[in-house]
């Protein structure tokens, strides 16, 4: 009998090579109490990340002097959002009207949408920091007001940018939480956004969650490179990725 194996050498080497939950030991045939609780805690963190409401006021406050507009998708609440991805891609009527009022006279180069997605926690932890790091690298770009979006999917950014008349949209969105990654932020870039754009027309930088994943500056660096290329070639998506030889692997 080796108990939970913690003090045995072969596991040291094997555990070092993977985050997989190997060598958990057993109680009879089942999982021992301590491991059962560890798994429950990881699941709880992921669940809470999904169901924590987006604190739009806090995001707006963190944006400081940047102008912003808060919008809501057509999904009324979290339960509807989870079951109706189509509604999470559409604006509710009041939001659409607010955006049209907020539209700049000259089309902006970029709209940044901060969207709760499947992990509002990721947005709270990382979105504004990524935006700050990115803005520092985009001196000659004009920005529309930042849009903070509740119950939002990635494609809501298309409707937002269309209402504002912007040339490009960047959606910073909470990604589906894993057991070991409840706070992962994704960034989706779409040139000439309009309703009906498909995923192959976007570029994505995912797993932004320092210290385990991509850093805020690292993400901003990749995004700024992608955006420069996108503006020069007037496109995003598969073609941009395939020919962007200078882009890091993580940009895919």
């Amino acid at each position: 009998m080796t108990g939970n194996g913690v003090d045995r050498d072969p596991w040291v080497m094997l555990r070092a090579a993977t985050r997989a939950r190997v060598g958990l030991g057993r109680a009879g045939d089942g999982l021992p109490t301590a491991e059962n609780l560890r798994l429950a805690a990881a699941h709880a963190a992921a669940r809470d990340a999904v169901h924590l409401p987006l604190d739009a006021d806090a995001v707006v406050a963190a944006l400081g002097e940047r102008p912003s507009v808060v919008v809501h998708s057509a999904a009324a609440d979290r339960a509807e959002y989870l079951q109706r991805p189509d509604l999470g891609r559409r604006l509710d009527e009041a939001s659409e009207a607010r955006l049209r009022e907020a539209a700049p006279e000259e089309p902006a180069d970029l709209t940044v949408v901060v969207a709760d997605g499947l992990s509002p926690r990721a947005v709270h932890d990382h979105a504004v920091a990524v935006l700050d790091a990115l803005a520092a690298r985009l001196d000659d770009w004009s920005f529309s007001p930042v849009v903070v979006a509740e119950q939002a999917r990635v494609a809501l950014g298309d409707a937002v940018a269309a209402a504002l008349g912007s040339r490009m949209v960047l959606v910073l969105v909470g990604e589906r939480p894993g057991m070991s990654s409840p706070d992962s932020l994704g960034a989706y870039l779409t040139w000439a956004p309009r309703v009906g754009r498909v995923d192959s027309e976007r570029n994505c930088v995912s797993n932004i969650r320092p210290p385990d994943g991509l850093s805020h500056d690292g993400a901003a660096e990749i995004l700024a490179a992608l955006m420069g290329e996108a503006r020069r070639r007037e496109l995003t998506g598969v073609e941009l990725k395939d020919t962007g030889a200078a882009l890091p692997e993580a940009a895919g």
């Binding site: 997989a20 939950r21 190997v22 057993r26 089942g30 939480p177 057991m179």
Partner: peptide, 25 residues
């Protein structure tokens, strides 16, 4: 089955090895 039921590549939960031993028993 995956270790601890936690698939660290696909980010979802399946069954652990222990789950199956228990049900077999």
């Amino acid at each position: 089955t995956v270790p601890g039921g936690d698939d660290i590549m696909l980010n979802y939960q399946s069954l652990s090895f222990q789950d199956v031993l228990q049900v077999r028993s």
